[in-house]
Design a protein around this nucleic acid. Sequence first.
RNA 1: GCCCUCGUAGCUCAGUGGAUAGAGCGUCUGCCUCCGGAGCAGAAAGUCACAGGUUCGAAUCCUGUCGAGGGCACCA
Length: 570
Amino acid sequence: MRELAATLVREALVAAIEAGEVGLSSPPEVRIERPRDTSHGDWATNVAMVSAKAAGMNPRQLAETIAARMSGHEDVSAVEVAGPGFINIRLSAHALQRVLTEVRSAGTDFGRIDQGEGRRVQVEFVSANPVGPMHVGHGRWAALGDSMARVLAHAGWDVQREFYVNDQGVQMDIFAKSVAARYLELCGREVEFPEEGYRGAYITEIAREILGDEGERWADAEPAAREDHFREKAYAQVLAHLEHVLHSMGVDFDVWFSERSLHQPAEDGGPSAVERAFDRLREAGHLYEHDGALWFRSTAFGDDKDRVLKKADGSYTYFAADIAYHADKFDRGFDRVIDIWGADHHGYVKRMEAAAAALGHEGKLELVIGQLVNLFRGGEVVRMSKRTGEMVTFEDLLDEVGPDAARYFFLRRSTDQPLDFDIALAKEQSSDNPVYYVQYAHARICAILRKATGADTADTSVDIAATAGTLLGKDAPLHLLDSDAELALMRKIAEFPEVVEIAARLLAPHKLTRYAEELAASFHQFYTQCRVVDPDDAELTTARLHVVDASRIALATVLGLVGVSAPERM
RNA sequence: GCCCUCGUAGCUCAGUGGAUAGAGCGUCUGCCUCCGGAGCAGAAAGUCACAGGUUCGAAUCCUGUCGAGGGCACCA
């Protein structure tokens, strides 16, 4: 639609130039935007204001000249000059009716655009430490990353989802020690629980499981051997659990990338990925030694201070592995590399950007910072304490509100805004709950389509998409669709490809939920004002069923990008 | 102290340098002989934190002040 409007303006401008009405050698780029106030029309352009000086005309005069050549076009119902020289364009009912046919032939491909042109993009997200349950923030980032991936794919990108597994380091060691301590307690031994150990009940459960599987034979083993064994067992179990929880919300990863692998020798026995990354930085002159440690001169790329990569004791910092990890991502040939991090990691942004630049990939890395989630229950803050272990995990939340409500609520706010998640509202089955509001519109549409078949509306075997296909032939009297409610609904449907474009470009999935609510509202308004199935008017019924079915497709498609189901009945 | 993010209606939040700043909730007033009322219509509600600057034009960009959250390890 935007392209249609731009083309209309461009053609009018070219015609005016050729007719000698406008003194321009070549037409300028035509920028089309949405007027903030819809009463100004569907589209507006400031092209007359931008090129007035070059044309030697005043902006309004130029605008009038262009507008005159646009009026009368079958896709334009009104064109007017406003303010300092805006050209406001209202598309005709004819142009909107044509969209219905496009939507219905596209099906779930509706809104697919070619922004990515098949280029490759990787989205890395969640990447929670596999040492315990995920918190609700992880849930938000999971929904965010997955929807981002879905909308990027819809916008023509070749997308890969990746989870970076921190399977090495201090956290893992503490984790192993914690499990070992619980195990020994279960064996009736006197043990001192590690100072910094994880005290969650799940640690004891893992220990109990090991005890059940392998008996007490580890009680008298060497502590180091015991911890090594427990670390592997416990970590594999937690990782499988994370995968399971994410999957139950419809989030699946293409790659689970192990941090540990970065430290292991290459397949040919050569240096590890970490050492190879060091070599690259060293050759480029970005490393130096100081106080027995190896430093990265990140200040050369805008960081606040230089960073240690290899400590004086010979061990590597987390950052060292992260540099190697990103070097590996770049080597894999992605055109874009997107990381979604929690707000608690945002202090890390500058040094990672510095590392990307030092590796010769400035601008290829996009760091998205997801703000945290505050849980409420009917307006009351849900208090959580890590110390006492009193907390609502992501899994708890999923169990309580279900995957649809969870995903929908996680995506209702812009990424850089902290999210207040009201558990009571998410469970409510009323119009106050936006996910029900949107899903209800879809179920209502399906009820109409069932009704239109004349079949038993209680028959659950009706295939809605197939029904709509057979019910509605290619030629329909769409010109009958000209009431305000019908036009408004068609406008909203036609807006969808634009929403995909913006959501993908700005990496902003909350545009999707917002659009879904607007579309649902347009549909409910249409429903209230226009009776669809009317035995006395077969023509109008057919035409309206076309809008209804196009609404169904648009709603189901946007919900698909959000990752929420589109129920045929509720 | 330094860095990052944020500050928009009573509340929760949209807003891509454009025109008279929008939506939901809440408050108030209405709409069911009719395809699903889990719906719809209407009303009231604003110093876009504040002060400068850039621009033909700023909620949006820049600087400063105030306020909120987060980050400032040879932790991850």
